[in-house]
Computed example of a mutant assay.
Amino acid sequence: MDRFLALRVFCKVADSGSFSRAARELSMTQSAASRGIADLESRLGLRLFERTTRRVALTLEGRAYYEQIEEHVRALEDAELRAASGFGDLAGRVKLSAPGALGRRLLLPELVRIMHESPGLVVDAALTDQRVDLVAGAFDFALRVGVRSEPSFIERTLGTSPQWLVGSAGLFAGKPAPTSMSELAAVRVVASGGVRDLEKLGLSVRLTTDDIETNLRAVEAGLGVSVLPRWLVARRVQEGRLIRLLPRLALPSPPLVVVYPRRLRRVARQVLERIERHLQKELTFDG
């Protein structure tokens, strides 16, 4: 068995916990799949799986190896799919979910480009901050921020979403911007979450909202400063409309995770691959 196929077998077994299921997905016999894993273990000098009559589970070494290679194997599979399709127009229906603001600001422009290129593509996009049920809603995939809790699905981190503390230029017109937490304590805060944490820091919260775009508009209107995703505010900081405050302040960087079933339809995988590249580029933009 060639190395790439052996790695595909390994990832399929790791994902499904079953040699028979992995073999079916790869259109091979279970014995061939078992031999491929045995050859891989022999080549690596590692035991990758613990096998019992009831289950197959990764060993610690197997888990570490899986985390190193899974994204690379997935990328090679995607490349084969694109080559097999001749890089032609995408066609079919794809249903996806993404957080509201991120979906509108980062995802939708790329979806529009994809759909202009592929007239046969139909997209159902649920842009909401509410957690959707992937099975009940028949979603192909979902983007989530800071969530990794779907054991029956594949979850991959596309990147992180660093947060910046920002205020409007007008808020500090004619006076210096705060350069320390003690100076910041004199400034009102606009928040979309973590209010108690902010108050513990001695900050006074003037407005709370459950929507980060509303939060941003309040900050731009001079109501106060706020912690917002870098992807949402970096261009405004670059343009001078917002000021980044206390850049050395340690703020969370929650992961952006894509969640999808273990068997993802080809058209959905192709759309996801385009979206991933776009989002990874947007997440690294820092002005």
Rank of each mutant, 00 (worst) to 15 (best):
V73Y: 01
A6K: 14
R241Q: 08
E71R: 13
S192K: 12
E150W: 12
G167L: 01
Y66G: 03
G287Q: 05
R206Y: 05
G170Y: 04
S20T: 11
R277A: 08
S27G: 01
D89T: 10
G45P: 07
A91Y: 03
T179L: 14
A268G: 07
L207I: 14
R74P: 00
A142L: 07
R266W: 03
I243K: 09
L256A: 03
V13I: 12
G92S: 04
Q280F: 05
A173I: 03
E70G: 00
G103F: 07
R262P: 00
R74H: 08
T208M: 06
E117R: 15
G167Q: 03
L44G: 04
L283M: 12
A126G: 03
S31L: 04
G287M: 07
R236W: 03
D133F: 01
A125G: 05
L246W: 10
A177T: 06
S149L: 08
L279V: 11
E80F: 05
R265Q: 14
G137D: 13
I212L: 15
S20V: 06
F141A: 08
P247G: 06
K200D: 14
R131A: 14
G103L: 08
L143E: 08
E110P: 00
R8G: 01
L134Y: 09
R43D: 10
F19C: 01
G170F: 07
A32D: 01
V190S: 09
